[in-house]
Simulated scan of single mutants.
Amino acid sequence: MADELLFTKENKIATITLNRPEKLNAFHDGMLADWAAALRECQADDGVNVVVLTGNGRVFCAGGDVSGFSRSEGNRALQMSTYLRQHVHPVARAVDALQKPYLCAMNGPATGAGLDMALLADIRYAKRSARFAETYVKVGLVLGDGGAFLLPRLIGLTKALEMFWTGDFVSAEEAERIGLISKAVDDDKIMEEIYTLAERLANGPTVAISLTKRAVYQALRSDLMSSLEAITGPMGVAASTEDHIEASTAFVEKRQPEFKGR
């Protein structure tokens, strides 16, 4: 991994850290390739139960570093389309394939594609001082990294369109109120809070957690009857795990279960 994107694993938790603070963690092609590769590795590694995304410095992510496009020659439409398909979208595809909790600790403001990258996470915590904006409109662009799909599902159509069309910032408190983030956290507690959640999930019934994630996302793209039928198989799998047997026994014995992750 390059120094501009850090990737570590410890105690069943993998951490991906955007590490380009002098550029407000704006990502470039190499960072994106490493990011997607890290996510794919997390999915394949049975020793990783939870993935945490965060950034170094005062900003979470200012989006893509596409400064070169303003000076580029040739077919700019083709260049931008190719950039999205070959570099940006592989991260979203890797997230979509990740069947483990993906948590985001937003250490500061997030704008444009930087916000969209955070929206890909299952759960987002943010510093109280952070602010968020969909700033594509301010540079004459449209949503390129999943924001048009993700944000309306999180905060509703009209509020999402307001953010898209104005590019205005919302505070962490407002973001929590409308559901853009799960929790606004005191600035000095952000990593403590996200790792508390990560550790709880990493040491929980991981098969059930993974199957639940899959069922929820499938349901968002389906209808009730299809979702009811689709859950019958995963329920059978979960019911056969050692974790379910242990939890059932612990309930009868009035004690806390000791999950093994299988």
Results as ranks from 00 to 15, higher is better:
Ala238Thr: 02
Gly233Val: 07
Asp145Pro: 14
Asp96Trp: 00
Ala14Val: 03
Leu143Ser: 15
Leu84Ser: 00
Phe27Thr: 11
Val207Asn: 09
Gly57Met: 04
Cys104Leu: 02
Asp187Phe: 02
Gly68His: 06
Val142Met: 15
Gln256Phe: 09
Leu32Tyr: 05
Thr166Trp: 05
Arg200Cys: 13
Ile194Val: 13
Arg76His: 12
Ser72Thr: 14
Leu197Asp: 07
Ala130Tyr: 04
Phe259Glu: 01
Lys23Glu: 05
Ala36Gly: 06
Gly64Phe: 06
Gly63Thr: 08
Ala33Lys: 07
Glu4Arg: 11
Ala92Lys: 00
Gly64Lys: 07
Leu224Arg: 10
Lys100Phe: 02
Arg262Met: 13
Asp116Trp: 03
Glu22His: 06
Arg200Tyr: 07
Arg20Asn: 11
Met235Val: 13
Tyr83Asp: 08
Val91Pro: 00
Met1Tyr: 04
Leu150Ser: 15
Phe251Asn: 12
Glu73Tyr: 05
Ala239Cys: 12
Lys183Pro: 01
Thr249Tyr: 08
Leu197Glu: 09
Val237Pro: 07
Gln256Arg: 13
Ala94Val: 02
Met106Phe: 06
Ser72Lys: 12
Asn19Phe: 02
Ile181Phe: 00
Glu4Lys: 14
Ser171Met: 05
Ala94Leu: 01
Gln79Cys: 09
Lys260Gly: 13
Arg153Ala: 15
Thr111Cys: 09
Met163Ser: 10
Gly204Asp: 14
Ala133Cys: 14
